[in-house]
Design a protein around this nucleic acid. Structure first.
Lengths: 392, 392
DNA sequence: GCAGATAGTTAGGACTGTTTACGAAGGAGG
DNA sequence: CCTCCTTCGTAAACAGTCCTAACTATCTGC
C-alpha cells in the first residue's frame, strides 16, 4: 500500500518550485511580486526560486510591466522552448508523432504508416521515427526531454506495458522497456483515452476542472477519469473499462462475452451492427463507416439518422450511470464519433434531462472535445510534458 | 480548482509528524530506531518528534524491547486514550452513538430512539445525547476531540449538510452548522457508506488497501469509493450513487423515475418486490423483511431462497460494472443484507466468474464486512478520529 | 571485564522560508 | 526639478528543519 513518505528540505524546495512553475505556466507572465502574492510565499523565497529557474533556463524575463504607482515590475515568463517532448499515437495502420514545447504547443508533425506484424517491427519503426523527429528538433537547451506514447488498448501505466490491444496483432508488449535502449529520456505509455484526458486537463477545456470523465467514442468505447485533478488509474492501472458496462442484459452479444455492453451501443462498432442493412459494400478503415453514416444522415437518409440518434441516446444512458457513480463536473466526448455531434447531442441531452438524477446530472457539463482528431497525440505529448515539469 | 499550496518549515515538520504518528498507530509499538529505519528519517529527527509527541501526550513509552545484541530499545506506543471521539449514526427511528479512543476502540455505547418530525427536534436530541456521552467520557488529557455523524442519504461532506435523506422527514439540514453551537469540537458529517468505508480502511479489512468500493446493501443501495487510499467524494460530494445505475432498462420502476436501477435488484426494497406474494402481513422496520427472508430461506422456503439468490446475481452484475469502471482491489459488502451471505455469495461469484472481464474481475476480492451491523457508527467515529489525527 | 553491536543523544553544519530593513524605480504635485 | 509616496526587488539576520558525525548508554557473549 501507499504510505506517505518522509520529506526533507529538498522535498520542500522542490514543492515550492513546482508551485511557482505551475503558476508561471498558467498565467503566461508574472512579476516576482505577483508571484509572491499568489503563492503566499515571501518575496525573498520567490526571488530565490525564480533566479534558480532563470539560471536553469526554465524562466526568462520578458520586460517591464505596468504599474499605477511605484516601480515597474519585471515580468517573467515560462520558457516553453527550454526543451521539447514527443507525443506518439500508435494506431493500427499508422503512427503519428508530434513535437511540442513545454507548453504543449506543436512545433512539428510526423506520420508514418506502419503495418507491424510483430512487436519487434513496431519497436524498430518507433525508434526510427523518434530519431528522425529528434533530428528536426529546434535548437534548445535541453533538447528532447521525454516521450509519451498513446495506444488504444489496455496499458499498464506504471510498468509501461501494453497488456492488450484489441486492434493490433502484437500485444502484449513491454514498450517502455524495449524503447529504453534507443531513447534515453523518460518514456510514458498510456492508453488513448487517458492521454486525451491529460491533454484536455493540461491544455484543453478541462484546464480548470478537477473531476471529469473523458469518453473516447471511436471504433470501440474507451474512457479516462480525472479525480481530484489527477488521472485515476485504479488498482492495477486498469480502471476505465467503461465500454463493457452492461446497459441492457438483453442486448446484442459483445466480444467480451456479455450482452448489451455500452460499447455495443455507442461506438462505430454499434453503427456497424445497427446499419448492417444499409451500409456500403466495404469499409476497411476505422472511421470510414462513421464518416459515411454522417454524410448519409446529413443528406437525410433515415437509416443513418436513426442509427446516430440511437448512439446519442445510449450515450446519454451510459453517461447517467457514470454521473451517478462519479459525480464529475464535466464530461468530454472525444474521438471520431464527435463528428456526428449534431445528431448525438439532442438525443443525448433529452435522455439526460429526462432520466438523470438531478443531483448528479443537472449541473453536469457534457461537451465535445474541440481537438477530437488529435487529442490522443496531443495527450501523449501532454503526459510527457507533465513528466518533465514534475522533475523541474 | 485545487491548486497546490505553498509549503514552509511548519508544513514540513507537520508532514513528518504525520508520517510518524501514522506508523505508530499501525504498528502498535516501535522503538525510535525502528521508526527511523521505517521512515528513512534520521534518528535525530525521529527522537525530536517523538519527544514532542510524548510531551503532548500522544505517545508514551511502554518498556524495553528485546534485542539480539546491543542496547535494548525503548518501545513507544501511540496513546489511544489521549482523547476521545464520538461516532453517531442517525437512522430513521433511532440514534446510535459510540465513544471511541483514538485507535477506534469502543469505550462506551449509547442509543436513543428519536422520532424527529422536524430538523430542530433532531438537533436537540443530538445535542442532548452528545452532552450525556460527554459526561461519561473516561478521564483523559484532551477529552472530547471530534464528533462524526453518519447518515444514510445524500450528504455534502465539505459543507456538513444533509442534502436529502430519503427515509427522513426533515432534510435538508445544515447539521454541522447547527450543531456547532452546542459542540465546540470539529464535526464531520458523511453518508453511511462513506463512513463504513472509512472504518474499514482505518481499522477493518481495508487497512492495507488503497483502491476499494464499499457497497451498503440495506433497504436501499449505497456505496463509498476508496481511491489512492482516500475516500473519493466527487465534484460536489455526490459521488457514489451506485444504486441508481441502470442494470436493465426493461426492469421495474424505481423511485428515481427510471427502470431497472441496481437498487431495485439488490436491496431489501428488491426483496419486498420479489417476495410480494409470499411475505408476512406487515414488516414495519428496516431490516425486518431481510431477517424474515433469511429465516425462511434457511428453512428451505423456495420463494425466499429464490429472492435472495436473485439478489446475489444482481449484486454480481452490478459489481462487474463497478470493477470495469474503477478496477478496485477489494469490494466490501456491508449493511443488513450481509446476513444472507450464504445465499448471495455462490450466485454472485458465479456471475462474476462467468461474465466478468478477467482483467478487472479475476483478482478482485469480494468480501462481506465483518462489522456490517455497526460499520456506520464505527465509521462515523473513524472519520472523527481521522480528523483529529490529521491535526496532531 | 572487554569487544562488538545496537539505541539514543549531543554538537555542528547546510539549507529553507520569514521578517525587517533598505535601495531602486517610477508617478504626482508643487 | 525636487519631494513625497508607492511598489518592486534585494540584503541581512533569524528561527526552524533535517542531516551527518561523534559520542554516550546499554546489552550480549566470551
Amino acid at each position: 500500500m501507499t504510505r506517505p513518505t518522509r520529506a526533507d528540505l529538498n522535498t520542500l524546495r522542490h514543492h515550492n518550485r513546482q508551485v511557482i512553475v505551475d503558476i508561471m505556466r498558467r498565467y503566461g507572465s508574472l512579476s516576482r511580486a505577483e508571484l509572491a502574492r499568489l503563492t503566499r510565499l515571501s518575496k525573498v523565497t520567490v526571488s530565490e526560486v525564480v533566479d534558480d529557474l532563470v539560471a536553469e533556463g526554465y524562466l526568462r524575463a520578458v520586460g517591464l510591466g505596468t504599474a499605477d504607482m511605484g516601480r515597474k515590475p519585471m515580468l517573467m515568463a515560462f520558457k516553453e522552448s527550454a526543451g521539447f517532448v514527443l507525443g506518439i499515437e500508435v494506431a493500427p495502420r499508422i503512427v503519428r508523432l508530434i513535437v511540442t514545447d513545454l507548453m504543449g504547443d506543436i512545433v512539428a508533425t510526423f506520420e508514418e504508416s506502419v503495418v507491424a506484424a510483430a512487436g519487434d517491427d513496431l519497436i524498430r519503426a518507433l525508434c526510427a521515427l523518434i530519431s528522425k523527429a529528434r533530428n528536426h528538433l529546434p535548437q534548445s537547451r535541453y533538447g528532447l526531454m521525454a516521450v509519451g506514447i498513446a495506444i488504444s488498448g489496455w496499458v499498464d501505466f506504471a510498468q509501461g506495458v501494453v497488456v492488450a490491444a484489441p486492434n493490433m496483432t502484437w500485444a502484449p508488449l513491454a514498450l517502455q522497456e524495449r524503447l529504453a535502449s534507443c531513447v534515453h529520456v523518460p518514456i510514458i505509455v498510456d492508453n488513448e483515452a487517458n492521454a486525451a484526458l491529460a491533454y484536455e486537463h493540461g491544455h484543453g477545456i478541462l484546464r480548470d476542472v478537477d473531476h471529469a470523465v473523458y469518453l473516447s467514442v471511436g471504433y470501440g468505447l474507451g474512457s479516462g477519469m480525472l479525480m481530484n485533478g489527477a488521472v485515476y488509474r485504479g488498482h492495477k492501472g486498469m480502471a476505465g473499462e467503461m465500454g463493457h458496462m452492461v446497459l441492457d442484459p438483453a442486448g446484442p452479444l459483445c466480444t467480451c462475452g456479455n450482452h448489451g455492453c455500452w460499447e455495443m451501443y455507442s461506438s462505430e462498432k454499434a453503427l456497424q451492427r445497427m446499419m448492417s442493412g444499409c451500409t456500403p459494400a466495404l469499409t476497411v478503415n476505422e472511421g470510414d463507416l462513421t464518416h459515411w453514416a454522417i454524410q448519409q444522415a446529413r443528406q437525410g437518409a433515415p437509416c443513418a439518422r436513426q442509427a446516430l440518434r440511437a448512439v446519442g441516446r445510449s450515450l446519454g444512458q451510459g453517461i447517467i450511470n457514470i454521473a451517478n457513480l462519479l459525480n464529475p463536473q464535466t464530461l468530454v466526448v472525444g474521438n471520431g464519433m464527435v463528428e456526428a455531434w449534431e445528431f448525438l447531442e439532442p438525443e443525448m441531452m433529452a435522455v439526460l434531462s429526462q432520466a438523470g438524477l438531478s443531483a448528479t446530472t443537472q449541473d453536469l457539463i457534457v461537451t465535445p472535445s474541440p481537438h477530437y482528431q488529435d487529442a490522443a497525440v496531443r495527450g501523449a505529448a501532454a503526459l510527457a510534458c507533465d513528466a518533465v515539469i514534475a522533475r523541474i
